[in-house]
């Protein structure tokens, strides 16, 4: 555990990694290989300064606080860990996540939560284009707005958008469900608005509570698949 610094003598279960002084590999190696058996439950990452791949592939119930902006793929493939980023994140935050929580205080660049199977991703500010692309079971709550092509080919899971959505929202949706509070610039192929059921209101309420974002669930609308693309329609205009 060379280079690992205890933040405070009494915090034996808490470690700090300073990415200005230590290579990222020390952090990720610790999280992957050395964490078990140390009793460490809380890791602080300081001076992240946009470094890529912070806390990727973690498979342990550890809390990781990143104090600053993270680069590409932060907390990608996360399993069990609770990763908090006190800043913005680059492309692909929590891509391929399986379980756990990733909470971003700032904004997220493109492809947030891409292809993720589970867990909860919270982005307090805006998420850029392709948020939730090909999501496969993750829940995503965006406090701000999302860019174009969000939830493209989303298969399962829920995307809550507290602000507006860009063009082609939910293009080629499968069974993922989108809840949107603001304006939708346009829907993608096969996506449409549906009435909210009691179960939908309850789902939004629960997700907002877990994300610690306050809004009235009654303000959200449900967007889901028309399921017309599920079957080949030989009579459709072949205009693509």
């Amino acid at each position: 555990m060379e280079g690992v610094v205890n933040v405070a003598p009494e915090a034996k279960n808490r470690l700090t990694f300073d990415l200005a002084a230590q290579p990222l590999r020390e952090l990720n190696r610790f999280l992957h290989h050395d964490l078990a058996g140390t009793g460490v439950t809380h890791v602080d990452v300081i001076n992240p300064d946009g470094t890529h791949n912070i806390a990727v592939g973690v498979d342990a119930p550890v809390r990781i606080d990143v104090d600053g902006h993270a680069g590409y793929y932060c907390a990608g493939m996360n399993k069990l860990a609770q990763v908090n980023v006190n800043g913005n994140v680059g492309p692909g935050v929590a891509e391929g996540m399986v379980s756990g929580t990733v909470h971003v205080k700032g904004f997220a660049s493109v492809s947030a939560g891409a292809a993720a199977h589970g867990g909860l991703l919270v982005i307090e500010k805006d998420a850029s284009l392709r948020c939730g692309i090909s999501m496969k079971g993750i829940d995503i709550v965006v406090g701000g707005s999302v860019g174009d092509f969000s939830a493209f080919m989303a298969q399962a899971g829920r995307l809550v958008i507290c602000g507006d959505a860009g063009d082609a929202l939910g293009d080629s949706l499968y069974e993922a469900v989108i809840y949107v509070r603001g304006k939708v610039a346009s829907f993608g192929a096969d996506a449409h608005e549906e009435p909210m059921s009691d179960a939908d209101f309850a789902a939004v309420e629960e997700l907002l509570a877990r994300a610690r974002i306050k809004h009235d669930p009654k303000q959200f609308r449900r967007v889901a698949s028309k399921r017309e693309l599920y079957h080949w329609n030989a009579d459709a205009d072949q205009e693509y």
Binding site: D49, G50, T51, H52, G68, H69, G71, Y72, N88, G90, G106, F107, S109, S128, L129, G147, D148
Partner: peptide, 22 residues
């Protein structure tokens, strides 16, 4: 292109940082 190349600028931690939209 990326924040990591801005991280050494003086005062950047308090800068208005944003991603330009398409």
């Amino acid at each position: 292109s990326e924040y990591r190349s801005l991280a050494r600028l003086p005062g950047v931690k308090n800068a208005n940082v944003f991603e330009p939209v398409p």
